Simulated assay, not measured.
Amino acid sequence: MTATRRRERGDASRWVTDRYQQLADHYGASVLPTKVRSPKEKAAVESGVNVVNKRVIGYLAEDVWTTLDDLNEAIAERVHEVNHGIRRVDGTTRWERFTEEEAMLLGPLPADGFTEVEWKEAKVARNSHVTCDYQHYSVPHEHAGRLLRVRLTGSRVTVFDGQEIVCEHGRLTGRKGQYSTEAAHLPVQYRNVDGLWSRQWFLQRAQAFGPATVQVIEQLIDRRQVEAQGFLDCQNILETLGKRNKQRLEAACQQLVNAGSAPSYTGLKRLMAGIDSDQKKPTTIRPAASSRKPRFEATEDGETPAEPPSGAYVRGADYYRRLEQERGR
């Protein structure tokens, strides 16, 4: 993957890509891309590559190592000789030049190493959380309903309002649907904040479905350490599962309450699918026709079945023999 690009086709100058610029910004470095096929603009780099190729790679080309540690030790010895043992034209070594002219200009490395950065836009839900990669992070409730920018790294999640940092969380990994909630981000009383979800708001909506649904919604909220963490599950159950069929949702909640199981969106969805299948009438089963040969008894008028036929009537060999005799007459 290249670290530079051309802004326009045929343009000789090159620009640093966004991902590479993020790396430079993280370490406080400047990147000056050179033109292609222009060795004069990168003479120091080419000279350093030449030294390593001759003094390290070429010197060790014929040797054999059985472990990676032995190889790294041999390379370290050659690099130490290049930096401390070889005198330049002015009589100094590379290490002396570095310590006298460059070392004092370097800044400290950041505490965290660079990781890839991903940017997303997320709307703050009415439970004062944004959702990224199926995980939920709290945001000050004043931003509810607004679209904010979220920066995701390997270890941190940072929420921005324009250029201002709104909040920051450690990134959640593992099981989906986890919450990272700071109590200071939530309002003191949900019912006093217009437009936000609250316990009473969900319980009032659940009453339109039935008492079992109300009980399930209460259990979902009570299971959470912070009530707001259960609001999104309540919204999904009432709005998604119960939007088209209130009776089936109430029946599924009743089954869940009777079984004493912990309520969840996935469990209710599975129960509702089973109720839907049970309501479909199965096709009437027809018994297969019997192929058993009926038993005949001799009478004055001929042979008649000894028992009423059941299923298919199978003619025996006597029937066809008697039919041929009648035709011969």
Results as ranks from 00 to 15, higher is better:
Val130Ile: 15
Gly162Ile: 10
Ala125Phe: 13
Thr34Met: 09
Glu142Lys: 15
Ala312Gln: 14
Glu102Tyr: 08
Thr131Ser: 12
Asp222Cys: 01
His80Met: 03
Ile275Glu: 06
Asp301Glu: 09
Gln229Glu: 15
Glu164Ala: 12
Leu152His: 04
Val82Met: 10
Thr17Ser: 14
Phe202Lys: 01
Leu268Phe: 09
Val51Leu: 14
Gly328Tyr: 03
Ala208Gln: 10
Lys35Ile: 06
Ala262Lys: 13
Thr266Ala: 14
Arg9Tyr: 06
Ile165Cys: 07
Pro33Glu: 11
Val89Ser: 06
Thr299Ser: 11
Trp197Ala: 13
Cys253Phe: 08
Arg146Ile: 02
Tyr137Met: 09
Gln229Ile: 00
Leu109Gly: 02
Ser30Thr: 12
Ala288Met: 10
Asp194Phe: 04
Pro305His: 06
Thr115Leu: 06
Asn245Thr: 06
Phe114Val: 04
Asn258Val: 12
Glu100Ser: 13
Gln235Met: 05
Leu323Phe: 08
Tyr27Arg: 12
Arg156Ile: 11
Gly107Ile: 06
Leu148Asp: 03
Arg149Trp: 07
Arg191Met: 05
Gln22Ile: 02
Ala3Glu: 06
Met1Gly: 08
Ala76Phe: 03
Gln163Asn: 07
Lys35Glu: 13
Glu41Pro: 02
Tyr27Pro: 06
Ala298His: 03
Gly230Pro: 01
His141Tyr: 15
Ile86Pro: 00
Val157Arg: 03
Ala43His: 05
Leu238Ile: 02
Val214Met: 04
Arg156Trp: 11
Met104Glu: 13
Asp112Val: 05
Phe231Trp: 07
Gly58His: 15
Thr181Cys: 04
Glu182His: 11
Val214Tyr: 00
Arg248Lys: 13
Glu324Lys: 13
Ala212Pro: 00
Val130Cys: 07
Gln279Glu: 15
Leu220Pro: 00
Pro140Asn: 10
Asp194Ile: 04
Ser128Asn: 11
Lys54Cys: 05
Gly91Asn: 02
Ala251His: 10
Val166Lys: 03
Glu300Cys: 01
Glu8Val: 05
Lys120Gln: 11
Gln204Phe: 02
Arg151Gly: 07
Arg329Tyr: 08
Thr66Pro: 00
Asn258Gly: 02
Arg9Gly: 05
Asp318Arg: 14
Gln200Met: 03
Pro309Ile: 15
Leu203Ile: 13
Arg19Asn: 13
Ser128Gly: 02
Gln21Glu: 15
Gln207Lys: 14
Asp25Ser: 13
Thr283Ser: 12
Thr299Ala: 07
Trp119Met: 09
Thr158Pro: 00
Arg244Leu: 08
His143Gln: 13
Thr17Gly: 10
Lys42Pro: 00
Val214Ile: 02
Pro211Gly: 05
Gln135Ser: 08
Gly85Leu: 04
Arg14Val: 07
Ile75Asn: 03
Leu249His: 05
Asn258Met: 08
Gly260Trp: 12
Gln189Thr: 13
Lys40Phe: 07
Glu116Gln: 11
Thr158Arg: 11
Tyr27Asp: 10
Gly274Phe: 00
Gln163Cys: 01
Met1Phe: 04
Ser277Gly: 01
Val36Ile: 04
Leu105Lys: 11
Arg88Trp: 01
Met104Gly: 08
Glu168Trp: 02
Glu101Asp: 06
Gly48Trp: 13
Val45Lys: 03
Ile285Val: 14
Val150Glu: 04
Arg327Lys: 14
Tyr20Thr: 15
Arg97Glu: 12
Val45Gly: 04
Val36Met: 04
Asp301Arg: 09
Arg146Lys: 15
Tyr265Asn: 03
Gln163Met: 03
Tyr179Thr: 01
Ser264Asp: 07
Trp95Tyr: 10
Leu148Val: 06
Gln204Ser: 13
Thr34Phe: 05
Ala24Val: 11
